[in-house]
Amino acid sequence: MVTAIVNPLVQEVLDLIGIFAFALSGALLAVRKRFDAVGIAVLAEVTALGGGVFRDLVIGAVPPVAFTDIAYFTTPLVAAAVVFFWHPRLARIRRFVLLFDAVGLGVFCVAGTVKALNFGMHPLPAVALGAATAIGGGLLRDLLSGEIPALLHPRSEIYAVPALLGSALVSILAVLHLLTPITSALAALIAVVVRLLALHYGWRAPLARGTTAQ
């Protein structure tokens, strides 16, 4: 069994950073959709906790930490309050949604893979679960707000690929016994940068031969 030797405090910090970043992206999208205060809070919570809850259920860490650690539940509410009172001008919100979504994606793919490895998963399915942790909240956010999920939209820049890349780096580092807080942060940063580059340059996954994006 491969384990990811990461201090539990580091694991929690990674989770909370990802939760805050995703909650900001959910709350900002709620503002763009003109949701009220309750809608902003709900979308922030779902976006921030959806992927982590899925991860915990799959690996058997029940009840999910989102329901046992008050910091996990209150952090999205703090992010929602920040957005509610101090959100940028509406014309700039989409850019901030994408930025915070990229940060959450990078942090969660690392945190999810680390936790999966520490619960005894093989490195390969741990990669898949780490990526699912990263994209789950964004998927739920888009569905609840009436958007076509970035994961599925043919015109969207690559979304799952950066998460898979970050997760794969974590598993490889764990197998090589090189996983540390610094290398974990580097893996997260690489995932974030790849996602931001995809947004900037319009990198998209290939379509089936003979088809075009609608």
Rank of each mutant, 00 (worst) to 15 (best):
I5M: 03
M1C: 12
V62K: 10
V107A: 15
L49M: 11
L144E: 03
K115V: 09
A134F: 06
V170F: 11
T113I: 12
I5C: 01
T68D: 01
E45K: 00
P181S: 06
T3K: 15
A91V: 10
H87T: 11
T183D: 01
L196W: 03
T47C: 12
G137A: 04
Y159T: 10
V110Y: 04
A27R: 11
A126V: 04
S156E: 07
G50N: 11
F22D: 00
A116F: 13
G136A: 07
V127A: 09
C109P: 00
I172Q: 08
A128N: 09
F84H: 14
A41I: 15
Y159W: 14
H200R: 15
V175M: 15
G136L: 07
A205W: 14
A23L: 08
R155S: 15
V83M: 11
V107D: 00
T47F: 02
A160Y: 05
G130W: 03
A48I: 11
L164V: 10
T74W: 10
S171V: 09
L57D: 04
V170S: 06
V42K: 04
G136R: 02
L99Y: 15
P154C: 05
A160M: 11
A71P: 00
F119V: 03
D69P: 00
P88W: 03
P88F: 01
N118C: 04
A134R: 09
Y72A: 01
V6N: 02
A191R: 05
P8W: 06
L140P: 06
A21N: 02
A44G: 02
A174D: 12
F119G: 00
I158A: 06
A126K: 12
I148G: 01
V110F: 08
T68F: 02
G146T: 14
P206Y: 13
P63H: 04
A188I: 02
L16W: 05
V2K: 09
F67L: 10
L9N: 08
T133D: 03
V10L: 01
L164N: 10
I59W: 05
V13S: 05
T133N: 08
A163F: 00
L186S: 07
L129P: 07
G210R: 15
R141K: 13
A134P: 02
V62L: 05
V13E: 05
F54Q: 10
A187W: 05
Y72W: 10
R209S: 09
R95I: 03
T47L: 05
D142G: 15
P64C: 09
V170L: 08
G39W: 13
F96H: 12
L90N: 10
I158F: 13
A134M: 09
P162G: 02
R209I: 15
D56Y: 10
A185I: 14
A91M: 04
A150S: 12
V58Y: 14
V97T: 01
I5Q: 10
E45W: 15
R204N: 09
L196N: 13
R34L: 07
L152E: 13
A23C: 07
F85H: 11
I135E: 09
S145D: 11
I190G: 05
L178Q: 15
